[in-house]
Design a protein around this nucleic acid. Structure first.
Ligand code: FES
Ligand code: FES
Lengths: 155, 155
DNA sequence: TTAAAACAGGACAAAAATATCTTTTTTATA
DNA sequence: TATAAAAAAGATATTTTTGTCCTGTTTTAA
């Protein structure tokens, strides 16, 4: 449903939301290892995210990526629409040119409710809120290193 | 979510379910025009579907594709798993290697319920039942030619 | 001042998905 | 039996997505 690029982007941003701030920047190398994402590909992605103000970066020794408070006020939807385009959740599941209650395809009513819900979730919840929930309820964004993102594993 | 190929396949089969039987076969040319799907690509697809017994075909003049009664007893899931593989609805929305209630990603519980539901729908309902519903409730599988698939438009 | 660390940017490469073309086989029927 | 219509099959082409490589630029600690 989402492209690899988009999945990488979301996970990276959530990761940065969990682990970084202006005093603790994280380099591409670390992020790509932790999340098991191809490094050069991720580098490109982060560039793009940086340009669109979804992440912040600084160069030089001790440089790296982090989420500023402003960055954290963005939503997952901002990521999706940047990477995968903003028609992602308007499209018909069977590829018809128009999706709507007035000309529903055979699975429209099964799919539609869900799309709405997910869309809202993505559009309303800020990154900050997602991060909060991850910390609280324990969600995973990497399988490699379970512990780093479990609740209570952080200071 | 589904590949183009898979969407084409589902729509073609539903179309055949609506309009064809052993006495009324339909050629690739017609199907591709009606559904607005690239012809040679569809031809390949139908070959594949034929091999897997999801559609039936005969060569020669007055030949074409149709759904036998056996074909109609298959499910949409059979199509999806053939074309897109049977992991399609087991995969994590964010691309994590394992998807499950025990190690949920941040959107797992939003997505999971839906996936279950759609999966069931696709797995339980036969093509015949889908076709029935299309006829009864009026569902679209092509936008180009609305009328051909609306209820009451057929004999 | 300098060297290393890190991001930035452009060009390139590989793989997968999508689409097309050409030839062969089958078959109804004139 | 010849012919034409249609699918089957295999080879090829295009596009998109994904991934890599190399060189440059900025920053900063020593
Ligand atoms: S019309 Fe197909 S999902 Fe809405
Ligand atoms: S773990 Fe991500 S969708 Fe289930």
């Amino acid at each position: 449903m989402l492209s690899n690029a988009c999945q990488y982007a979301i996970r990276s941003i959530l990761y940065l939301g969990m682990r970084s701030d202006e005093e603790h920047k994280i380099g591409v190398k670390v992020i790509s290892k932790e999340l098991e994402v191809p490094q050069p590909f991720l580098a490109k992605l982060l560039q793009q995210l940086n340009k669109s103000n979804l992440v912040t970066s600084t160069k030089g020794p001790y440089g790296g990526f982090y989420l500023s408070e402003t960055n954290k006020q963005h939503t997952v939807w901002d990521i999706v629409s940047l990477i995968d385009g903003n028609e992602k959740f308007n499209q018909c599941f069977l590829g018809l040119s128009k999706c709507g209650d007035d000309n529903p395809c055979p699975v429209h009513f099964t799919v539609s409710a869900f799309k709405q819900k997910l869309f809202q979730d993505f559009k309303e919840k800020t990154i900050a809120e997602f991060v909060e929930e991850i910390k609280l309820k324990g969600r995973y964004i990497s399988l490699k290193s379970f512990e780093i993102l479990k609740p209570d594993s952080d200071s």
